[in-house]
Design a protein around this nucleic acid. Sequence first.
DNA 1: AGCACA
Length: 450
Amino acid sequence: MASVSSQPQFRYTQPPSKVLHLRNLPWECTEEELIELGKPFGKVVNTKCNVGANRNQAFIEFADLNQAIAMISYYASSSEPAQVRGKTVYLQYSNRQEIVNNKTTADVAGNVLLVTIEGQDARLVSIDVLHLVFSAFGFVHKITTFEKTAGFQALVQFSDAETATSAKNALDGRIIPRYLLSENISPCTLRITYSAHTDLSVKFQSHRSRDYTNPYLPVAPSAIDGSGQFSLGLDGKKLEPESNVLLASIENMQYAVTLDVLQMVFSAFGPVQKIAMFDKNGGLQALIQYPDVQTAIVAKEALEGHCIYDGGFCKLHISYSRHTDLSIKVNNDRSRDYTIPNPALVNPQPSILGQQPVQTMGPPAAHQYNGTQYAPGSEQGMMPPPQHSAGWASAVPPMPQSMPVQMTNHPYMPTPTSMPQMAPTGMMQMPGQGGIPPAGTVPPYTPNQM
DNA sequence: AGCACA
C-alpha cells in the first residue's frame, strides 16, 4: 500500500489538517508559547513540542479545521512571519489529522518507576544493586531491566504510588552510592520518571528481571544457555552460576559447628536433602543440597555473611557449588543424606528448644514462626520495610553485612499455588526446628545448656 | 528547515 508518508511531501501540496506542523522553533519551546501562537486563530486543543531529532519542531492541533486554515492563510500573506522568541517559525499542515499521545506518562504518579541509569558503565549495574537501592523506600515487588536507545533502563515496581514517589524524589538525579559498585565502575546517575505500567510481567527470575513477590518463579533458562552471566553481584562482578547446592565455609569457628547445626540453620529456607562437611585450608566447609535452585538462592542471600553465633563467631560465607547432587556414601557426623531414612544411625533432628544460637541470623529465627507474615493474598507484609523515612544518605546502610537480611525476601511467600514442585509441608517441617548444638559445643551464653 | 511515539 502506497501510503502518503512514503512519498515526498511538499508544503504546498499538503492537504489541510486541524494539525499544523511547526519547524525552526527555538530551543525547548514551551507548550504555552505554542498556545499563544495559535490562540488568535482558534482554540488550541493540543500541542506537542520538542519534536524531531533537534527537538525544534512542534505540532499544534486546533479544535476546528477552519481555525488551522485561518492561521496558515494569515501567515501566508503576512509580512511578519510567525515568531517564537523572535525566531521565525515555519508553518504547514501536518500530514496527520490529530496529535497523538501528548499528555501522558512522565507526570502521572504511579507505583512503577522508569529508571534510566546514566554513565559509561551503566549496564554493569546489576539488578541486585538496583534492588538494594530502591528497597530503602519500601518493598520492591518487581524489577525489569532492558536496553533502549535511551540507554540502560529499569522498571521498578512498588506497592503504591506513594512509595514510588518517595523513591523518585530521593533518587532522581542522584548517583548510585560508590560502595555498592566496584571501584572500576564510573559513576552512574539515576534519572527517574513514572511509568504508565502498574504491574510488570516477570516470567523468570533472571539477571534481567526479578519478581520479589514470588521467589519460586522459575529461574530463567539463561543458566542453560551457557552464558555464565546469569548473575551479577553487588560489585558488578560475575558470580558463579546459581546452584541448588551451596558451599558454606565457616570463618572464625570458635565453637564447633556440627552437622545438626548446619541442618537446622539451612532448613529454615527449605528442605535440606544432603550435607557433606569437610576440612579445607584449615577451615571447615560444607556442601548443602536443596531440591531446587530457588531455595538455595534464598538461603544464600539470607545467610551470606551472617554468624551462626552472636559475637561474630562462626561466620558463614556462602557460594554456589558446582555440584548438583551430592554423593553421600555414609551417614556419619560429617555427612548425611536426609532423603534416605536411616533410623539406625540418625537422629537428624536433635532436640529443640531454644533458638538462641541462631538469634543473630534474622531469617531462620524471624521467618519461621511469625504467623503474621502469612497474610494470604497479600503481597506485602512479608518483610519490614526498611527505613521508610530514611533519606538517601541513610537509606542504604553502609554496612554490607546488615543488608542481606533487611533486603531479603521472606523465603516463604504466601503464594501456595506458586510452589508446585515443593511440598509446603516439607518447608514447614521440623516443628521447633531450632536444634541446639550437642553438649560441649554450646556457646557459653546459651541458657539451656546442661 | 521538512512530520512525532508507546
